[in-house]
Simulated assay, not measured.
Amino acid sequence: MHRHDPIRILQDLIRCPSVTPAEGGALAYLDGVLAEAGFTVDRPVFSEVGTPDVENLFATIGSGAPHFVFAGHTDVVPPGDEAHWLHGPFSGDIVDGMLYGRGAVDMKGGIAAFTAAALDFLAESGLKRGTISLLITGDEEGPSINGTVKLLDWAAKKGHRFDAAIVGEPTNPERLGDAIKIGRRGSLSGTITVQGRQGHVAYPHLAVNPIPQLMKLIRRLTAEALDHGNERFDASNLEFIGLDVDNKAWNVIPAEASARFNIRFNDEWNRDTLEAWLRSRLQEAAGNEIDFELELVPTGSASFLTHSDKLIGTLSDAVEASTGRRPALSTSGGTSDARFIKDYCPVVEFGLVGQTMHQIDERVSVADLQTLTAIYRGFLDQYFA
């Protein structure tokens, strides 16, 4: 049994409707729990023109090295039509060993587990050396502009130097203990716009239809694989995720057409080499006949791979001790705030099974929540031994 109950903490967090960018009471709740245990808690709010203000939390206890960080986010995606939920999205109900609610898996469950583990560790073992911090944002499910990336910069300017971090994202595919994420592919998004000439569909010779031209460019970009992956990462992939001509009329050839895409890329690429690849193939397909523009989204992320034997080995040992399974070391999946943390210290991701994240009736096994807490506690015991 845990002295500090992760089940109760998770229920309390789920009952805070913290849909991005609303704080919803979740950070205030953690503030109270952590301050009572002796943490120094700050809740900086960050702003940027064109984006909502976001409140964040940084809690720390101890001093000096090693400085270990648990990281995560209390913001959640919208629940959708609440009438479709068997149990209310902000109820925290427990039925047949499953705890229901938005954020149960992604990722209030991880926060509840590492909060309980840290509090138990401090109460039972005491922090004889080093520092433990919790870095929590309210902006991970949103634009990720006023959250972790700014909170890390804020902490660094306060003099904090981190040695290792675990992000409590739901990274296990089937069973708790399946995998630790030790890296991620990068992400690059962009839009291709083709300029045509508007005209009447009955007089196509007086117009230039941009849609077939855009399709020609799309076919060129999807005609070949970016790569075939390597021993470290899955293959890179380019996916078109939106087409737009902004035309509701049936008798008008539109003036322009655009397509949005996202690339998830491994360590064989970076932003510059991908841009060069895109432009060369688009120009090859366009020749002198198609007037196009390529605009890349300025935000994105590079691929990364963590090499810390202490961090990875200690967490692997803790997982094996609690589950009996040695976790695989994985770089699959999407992105997380680890892409920002990697610039400050070695970082891995480990949390709950992610099968119901963002779904109706998102839920977590109570047994898994308790086991995850034991894993985090075992990690702290070894890391600060």
Rank of each mutant, 00 (worst) to 15 (best):
V319H: 07
H87Q: 02
G92Q: 09
L122F: 04
A259I: 03
D368S: 03
L57Y: 10
P327R: 02
A328M: 06
S308T: 09
E36A: 11
G300L: 11
T306N: 15
T60E: 09
P79K: 07
S336L: 06
F68W: 01
E320G: 12
I9D: 10
V54R: 15
P17W: 03
G88F: 04
G126L: 07
A104R: 01
F46K: 14
P204N: 12
L214H: 13
A113W: 04
N230E: 08
L311F: 06
G147V: 10
I94D: 15
E48W: 15
D381G: 00
A113P: 00
W85F: 09
G229D: 12
V297M: 15
A276L: 14
G80N: 06
D93Y: 05
K248S: 10
Q213C: 01
G103Q: 04
F90N: 11
G242Q: 10
F304S: 15
D12W: 13
R271E: 14
L243W: 04
T191N: 06
H67W: 10
L380V: 03
H87P: 00
R43H: 04
W154D: 04
D93W: 05
V54H: 12
S316K: 07
R175E: 09
E231F: 01
A328N: 12
L305M: 12
W269T: 11
G324C: 06
P66N: 15
G333N: 10
H84F: 05
W277K: 09
F68A: 04
E23G: 03
A123K: 08
L86R: 15
R129Q: 14
I253R: 02
G183H: 10
I136L: 10
L226H: 12
R129Y: 10
V245C: 15
T137L: 05
L10T: 02
